[in-house]
């Protein structure tokens, strides 16, 4: 996803002179092509995330669409108030980019585990979450954001994720994106973020032989009203996310059904249990221990 991000950003920046990139002294061996090609639109803000996000908002207020790139919780929790007040409240076109969403940096410890980021972002009015499931969805999300600049949060995995779509799909906020559709299926997995790959493996298991798979790469507070009608097409929907269950994606979908309580029983949520907080290990191990298994 990292590589898809920088390649797409280069392509978009070639077309759109407003696109700028700020990094928080991270992105070694990833962001150099952008810095070399567009030095006037690149900034390394240093290890100073509050200033980084504030200055991104300032640049955005002068017509830039600023992508702010860092790792895990550094561009989110460390500067949460700058995102809330400076970016989201002012409706400025800043895309916060976090690489290493979920437990991608599993071995690096709790500081690097981004498992509460949806919770933070989804409580901000005006904030669009972009949590692509594969490199193609990364490109799709970025094209959407470039065409619709707004306060946004792009959550990337790491590198090496397989492509789940043959081409770059068209994505829209709140719309479920088919990944694997089985004729006659009455239930579906609905993944956001990098767990889409994990969900494809579940689809191969006998227990999910009657199950389709969708991805939800773009969502946020504003897209809640679109959910009930989509969910109503299925007898069961199983949300999948590498985020804590509390205030995550599944919880968001559940809240969206408040006005149609009859649908709530069709929803099953698979998310990380809080017991995984503080554990270290590979992403696969921690996802399993956190409850993201069959």
């Amino acid at each position: 996803m990292r590589n898809a991000f920088i390649h797409e950003l280069m392509a978009l920046a070639t077309q759109d002179p407003s696109i700028a990139l700020i990094v928080g002294d991270l992105g070694y061996s990833v962001i150099e092509p952008f810095a070399d090609t567009f030095p006037e639109r690149f900034v390394n803000a240093g290890v100073a995330e509050q200033n980084m996000m504030g200055l991104a908002a300032g640049m955005a207020s002068e017509g830039y669409h600023v992508f702010v790139y860092s790792i895990a919780n550094f561009p989110t929790f460390r500067c949460a108030e700058q995102i809330r007040n400076d970016v989201a409240y002012h409706k400025l076109p800043v895309t916060v980019v976090s690489v290493g969403g979920g437990l991608a940096y599993g071995g690096l410890g709790y500081s690097h585990h981004a498992v509460q980021d949806y919770a933070l972002m989804r409580t901000l009015p005006n904030m669009l979450i972009a949590a692509p499931g594969d490199p193609m969805e990364v490109r799709a999300c970025m094209r959407y954001l470039a065409a619709n600049p707004q306060p946004s949060y792009l959550r990337l995995g790491k590198a090496g994720e397989p492509e789940l779509h043959p081409t770059v799909p068209v994505v829209e906020p709140g719309k479920w994106l088919p990944v694997h559709v089985r004729p006659g299926a009455t239930r579906t997995l609905l993944s956001t973020g990098a767990t889409a790959e994990r969900a494809t493996h579940w689809c191969d298991e006998p227990a999910f032989a009657d199950c389709s798979l969708h991805s939800m790469p773009l969502w946020g507070m504003a897209s809640k009203p679109l959910q009930a009608a989509q969910l109503d097409a299925w007898q069961q929907v199983i949300t999948v996310e590498d985020h804590l269950e509390d205030a995550g994606f599944g919880a968001w979908l559940l809240e969206s059904l408040d006005r149609v309580p009859a649908l709530r029983s069709r929803l099953v949520r698979k998310a990380l249990d809080a017991r995984v907080c503080g554990m270290v290990g590979s992403q696969a191990t921690l996802n399993r221990l956190g409850g993201l298994d069959l």
């Binding site: 509050q50 200055l55 908002a57 300032g58 640049m59 207020s61 002068e62 700058q82 007040n85 400076d86």
Partner: peptide, 18 residues
Amino acid sequence: STGSLGHGLPFGVGKALA
């Protein structure tokens, strides 16, 4: 808009850099 302190200078830095 401000109200929480420590936000104005970073924002102004962004404007000046632009």
